[in-house]
Design a protein around this nucleic acid. Structure first.
Lengths: 336, 336
DNA sequence: TCGCCTCGTGTAAACGTTTACAAGATGCAG
DNA sequence: CTGCATCTTGTAAACGTTTACACGAGGCGA
């Protein structure tokens, strides 16, 4: 079955293709009767404008690109779910693109990349751009909203990572812990990703507030994965003087850590208190104390901002901060 | 910065646009020297074909659509991750589309929907099509591969749900349980989704094998969500004669059930054994016994099949079954 | 030397819209 | 009745590619 074109509709309605286009796209200056007739015929013929032709002529793709590292992680999935909700309602398609290696990232940012010409706007999730890439992105002229990380000159939806990490750590200290570990993402990544750095800074600030020392031996990399968290906690527990509590930069790492700790015969929270970060769906079932952020809502809100930018309703970048909340559960308690 | 067109490249190279197109797309019959020169100039001008123009002329979108119910669920996220991996390597974009309500679904299947014209192929995840929709989908002529569910006439990547559920239930019975509950998805959904029906049938077959009765009062709907699983187990535990074990159709429901059961003072596995289904990343950390399926791998494999179909390398639908495996952990044990 | 095949390239017609501009029709004020 | 807005519609030029077909040049066997 070859699809009907706008010409078929025009012929059948006895008008020109221009009128059909105007009628169907809801433009002004079409006689009500004509519009109605055209609508009816279009429905009969099951006509829908050929997307590519329409996009070529109008220059709008009605598609938004979402770029995130490491698909399959809970965080990215939530953002996708939130974005999809808003985009579907607004008639946009959602293109997802994963960048999980520095290589990938460089390719994405190169001018010929960045989904150039394929999207009307970009949602950048936890994606940090090196200074040399920021310029190219601006030149491309595509509206951008970042989530999690921030990129100079673009709208953003973030949380106060330092304050959140500080509050989570403060909770641990308040319980009476003195020897506190940190499960980071990839400590080798260096300045590639500011978010972990901010969280580390918050962690350290809380320790300093309490006059506690920050022992570098108690920092371990968990790569933001369940397995990585398990590996990291194992490393910490085999220290000669292991921590009595640990702050994890993601709930997935925290849950991995709890699982492994228990396998190693370490009682949680008896021998080790664990505090996570994210507000994962399963945190409640796991009894995990966590610094919860409204990820799905952030995805929705960021998408609304992006659509506003695409529609030209935004004159300046909009920066918003979501509120986080410490949810105390059974994985944290005073030390023995 | 307005982007370079193929005409700019042609002019600069002193050839026609046709030659540029052929050279850049790797077609035959272009003199090596010419091709090299054109490549160089294209790189200098940072030229890349305008996607919409290219798609309009060639009829290929180099985009694959992935349709799944309920984004934010672990299963869908894994499939996306697997698909993305293959698609990125093959140069395709990935468009995701969520259908979570019957309404949504109907709209998707209507001929004007189905991402018509926007994708070269479709990956349908856990999506069941009513008979009246199947025809429309075939008429559209778009290659389709289904994952999880099966749709008449299209390639599929599934597991043997009945056998898997039967094996999982058999494991429970072997431990010595006699009163076994079932946490289903949405029992009201009826025939809308065959997968839960098959799993229910497998569950019942195992009971029958052992001469046990299937008590309808021990079936509860968990909506495939963490919270739903929690709610369902609460319902089961307040039965006058509660089960000593429960089989859940997804790990998320199982973990939700375990969390709630423990909150209610019910020991798992002491008072209640719980067996899940999926092989969730967190199942290990949770100590959850589960029927594990290689979801990410299934996503990858299905995508390979889809690409083969798009390339016309498939003369008949290809049906593949992935192997599942029971992974026994601490959430299941003999009854007290 | 002739004819034919191959190779490299150009010409121009799609692909199916959107939209600036022109033009005809209609209504109303003067 | 005239002139001028206002509406409605049509004409035609983009939008930037891909590709069928034509064409000329060169090589080669007879």
């Amino acid at each position: 079955m070859t699809r009907a074109t706008i010409h078929d509709v025009a012929r059948r309605a006895g008008v020109s293709v221009a009128t059909v286009s105007r009628a169907l796209r809801g433009h002004a200056n079409v006689a009500p009767a004509t519009r109605k007739r055209i609508r009816k015929i279009a429905a009969e013929l099951d006509y829908a404008a050929h997307p590519q032709a329409s996009r070529l002529a109008s220059g709008r793709t009605m598609t938004v690109g979402l770029v995130a590292p490491l698909f399959g992680l809970w965080y990215a999935g939530q953002v996708v779910a939130g974005a999809d909700e808003i985009l579907a309602a607004a008639g946009y398609d959602l293109l997802v693109h994963s960048v999980d290696t520095p290589d990938n990232r460089a390719r994405f940012f190169s001018t010929t990349g960045a989904l150039r010409g394929r999207v009307d706007g970009l949602l950048l999730v936890d994606l940090f751009a090196a200074p040399e890439h920021v310029g190219a992105l601006h030149e491309a002229g595509t509206p951008v909203v970042t989530i999690g990380e921030r990129i100079e000159g673009f709208s953003s939806l973030t949380i106060d990572n330092a304050a959140a990490a500080r509050a989570a750590t403060h909770h641990i200290i308040e319980l009476g812990h003195q020897r506190i570990g940190l499960i980071d993402g990839d400590p080798e990544a260096g300045d590639e990703s500011p978010v972990p750095l901010h969280r580390t800074a918050g962690f350290q600030a809380a320790l300093a507030d309490a006059g506690l020392v920050d022992d570098a031996a108690l920092h371990a990399g968990g790569m933001f994965s369940v397995e990585g968290g398990a590996h990291a906690v194992e490393q910490l527990l085999t220290e000669q003087e292991p921590p009595t509590a640990v702050f994890c930069m993601s709930d997935e790492m925290a849950m991995g850590a709890i699982g492994r700790a228990r396998e190693l015969g370490c009682d949680v929270p008896g021998d080790l208190s664990v505090v996570g970060f994210d507000g994962h769906d399963l945190a409640h079932a796991f009894g995990l104390t966590t610094m919860s952020q409204p990820v799905r809502g952030m995805g929705k809100r960021a998408t609304e901002t992006l659509i506003a930018a695409i529609d030209g309703r935004l004159d300046a970048p909009r920066h918003e901060r979501a509120d986080v909340e410490l949810v105390v559960r059974k994985s944290s308690s005073p030390p023995r």
